[in-house]
Design a protein around this nucleic acid. Structure first.
Lengths: 217, 217
DNA sequence: CGCTAGAGGGACTCGAGAGTCCTTTCCTTC
DNA sequence: GAAGGAAAGGACTCTCGAGTCCCTCTAGCG
């Protein structure tokens, strides 16, 4: 997610605190609207109204809608990664994974499974219409998966996880279960499928535990 | 997916073979366009052109775009279910599941993971904007999952699967892995994550096998 | 204090896409 | 073979949303 590459590094506009605040208000408003309605169903007028700004401000900060969308992708990715980093950076036991699962399931239950994962939905909506957005989302997924696999690697190193466990594949499988769970929960407007999917993935990881706490299966 | 419920059963229009053929051409064209571009990014003019019809025909057969979208949802659901029924109705062994997995992975590999699952993408795009479409998709997912869980039930009954295996939950988990795999593969434009996700789910199911063929894990 | 540039307001243009309507052609039926 | 309704063509309208423009306001700085 390399930082902005303002085409000509020569001509740069000064930007005030106030300007930054407005820009953030716009991105935040767009983020929320696009989360509940989807990207394509969100109009710039919606964003303008929700952010209490004007059309000129929108175009002052973003060349066009696509650029705003990309800013939202970046913003949302940063939010998710911040949250996940906090939850996963110290992951070193199976119970830590269970806590992580519980937090995600609870949060999704609050909205009855609706809306799904902010990143996953955008990935589906944008993958076929904006290469740049797709690659940003891809990077975010990779970073997220790495947080998990790093934790699993730590568990393997500490001996909690068997040597023949493959942390990278387990992390990919867990992420897929999470995303698929979000999708099914969204379609069902019920968090259950997501919980079941995550539980399956966790059970599978559990089968690689070396602990005595490991049950018969 | 209850059949059409033409509001007033009194006033029904006669419809000729030719009319039916045109309607199908429209739905099929819309289906393909919406698969690659997404629902919202497909215009009626695109559909008109691709189906070699005229605007009046579109509105002759569908009250509005939403109705066309619903017809596409139904159509796509029927196609998937037909395909999956053929593949899963006789499922009775683990190797059958592996063959099923291989077919899906191979098909998705042909398009380098792009576009994802026709049903999953629609579910995400439509769940928050068309209740009726959402519930049709939900029913299709349920039917699909049932095909899998029926197969697992048969395996349990025949003794291939342990008694403490829960076919319904396993089916949900497998479906989530599939959908999540499609999503990640789409974002990555690479089928690998999908293969890994399905393999994880299959490994988990394998751990419930009673066979001697069951490996150490 | 006044100049300047960024911040902000909001009316306006323009095009695209949804949806309408009228006319013509094609089938079917008596 | 005439009538009538379905099928088809395609021009037209109308709305909505993206993007432009120009003017005003504010704040920092000499």
């Amino acid at each position: 997610m390399s930082d902005e590459q303002e085409a000509p590094p020569a001509k740069r506009r000064r930007i005030s605190q106030r300007g930054i605040a407005t820009r953030e208000r716009i991105v935040e408003a767009a983020n929320q609207l696009m989360f509940v309605r989807g990207v394509n169903a969100t109009t710039l007028d919606d964003v303008r109204e929700a952010s209490q700004t004007s059309k000129s401000q929108l175009y002052h900060h973003f060349a066009d809608k696509q650029e705003l969308v990309r800013a939202v992708v970046k913003h949302r990715g940063a939010l998710v990664m911040e949250r996940e980093h906090g939850r996963l950076e110290r992951l070193k036991s199976f119970s830590g994974l269970v806590r992580w699962r519980n937090a995600l399931v609870q949060a999704n239950a609050l909205q009855s499974g609706a809306y799904g994962c902010g990143l996953g939905s955008m990935a589906i909506e944008l993958s076929d219409q904006d290469e740049q957005a797709r690659s940003m989302l891809l990077e975010t997924f990779a970073a997220w998966e790495k947080l998990i696999s790093d934790g699993l690697h730590r568990m393997r190193q500490s001996g909690a996880l068997a040597q023949d466990a493959d942390p990278d594949k387990l992390a990919t499988g867990l992420m897929a279960a999470l995303q698929g769970g979000y999708l099914l929960a969204n379609a069902a407007h019920d968090v259950t499928p997501m919980a079941v999917a995550l539980d399956m993935a966790l059970e599978h990881i559990k089968s690689f535990l070396t602990e005595p706490s490991k049950t018969t299966r």
